[in-house]
Design a protein around this nucleic acid. Structure first.
Lengths: 176, 176
DNA sequence: ACCTGAACACCGTTCAAGT
DNA sequence: ACCTGAACACCGTTCAAGT
């Protein structure tokens, strides 16, 4: 099971990740995988959530001292992790992010941060949806630098652009 | 060519739209399509941009009177059109929106609106990327209401959530 | 517990040929 | 101009069977 996930991360491109290709790379018959994972979708879900383990969690003292900053850091780190795995972006988009354990943990921490920043519960939940959509979407945009025309933007420019929009959102969320 | 596009819109789900299925529904051999469209990707591009023709363009006088409002209306209308075609969302996500004629027209109008609202050129271009990513992303989220847990949100709630985030962004974009 | 062989019902795309 | 037949190299998944 774990072996499978590792192999997948090395191979780039979820589009090119077929059960058969994976089985081939493991030197095994295609159907042998179904003893371990049940499904192609399930397999991809596992890989996606696994990657999110790399997102940096803020220390408790940073969360207390500057909750808004901590939320921004979570989103920035998520952006960096996602951009570092461009081949997985189509899958993240399709599923609106992973809904596994890692994703839930991150969501919980960020929601907590918004609460500490004085954002009301209902608003915080709206804000989370907005932030997640924005972060995944912009990471996906950054993962395909080709069609951002004339001349194409550098990774640094894209990250700065992401940060600009993120700050607009956070400003609106925590209030004027 | 056009006939093909129409048939596709009726059929729901880009995932289920194969060349072969399309050919079947047209009562024609699969390879016959290649005389008209060259590619599956090309075909999908055509469909996506075609749908954007339904997005409402603001009248010149509204654009002049309230440029920020006009930009918001474009994004809201885009959201509505996208949500009305949930089956196409995976394709929009993958391509970060259409890059055809309709998409370019809309982008041009919105950029013009931001300019009239007093946003500097470079900032306006950043803002456009942010707005597009946000709008497509949220429309995609709204197109899969299933996994927005306990209880799932209604279309109206999702649209309100979209509008909230959109206003946060516009507030940040046009300045404090 | 973990694998394989064989099969089913699919794909996108190309090539040569027909009218 | 527009189509077809036949083929190539693929898919995900299931079923029965082997060790």
């Amino acid at each position: 099971v774990l072996v499978a996930a590792r192999e997948l991360l090395a191979a780039d491109g979820v589009g090119n990740l077929s059960m058969r290709a994976l089985a081939r790379s493991l030197g095994v018959a295609p159907n042998a995988l179904y003893g371990h994972v049940g499904n192609r979708d399930q397999l991809i879900d596992l890989v996606l959530d696994d990657v999110l383990a790399q997102v940096h969690r803020p220390a408790e003292k940073d969360l207390a001292a500057n909750p808004t900053g901590a939320v921004r850091d979570i989103m920035l780190s998520s952006y960096d992790v996602l951009v570092a795995h461009p081949g997985l972006m189509p899958a993240y988009l399709e599923r609106q992010g992973a809904r596994g354990v890692q994703a839930q943990q991150l969501g919980h921490v960020a929601l907590d941060g918004l609460g500490r920043a004085g954002v009301e519960e209902a608003t915080a939940r709206e804000a989370m949806r907005v932030l997640i959509v924005y972060t995944i979407g912009f990471a996906a945009l950054s993962a395909r630098p080709a069609d951002l025309g004339d001349p194409p933007l550098s990774p640094a420019e894209l990250r700065a652009n992401f940060r600009t929009g993120l700050d607009w959102l956070l400003l609106g969320i925590v209030g004027t």
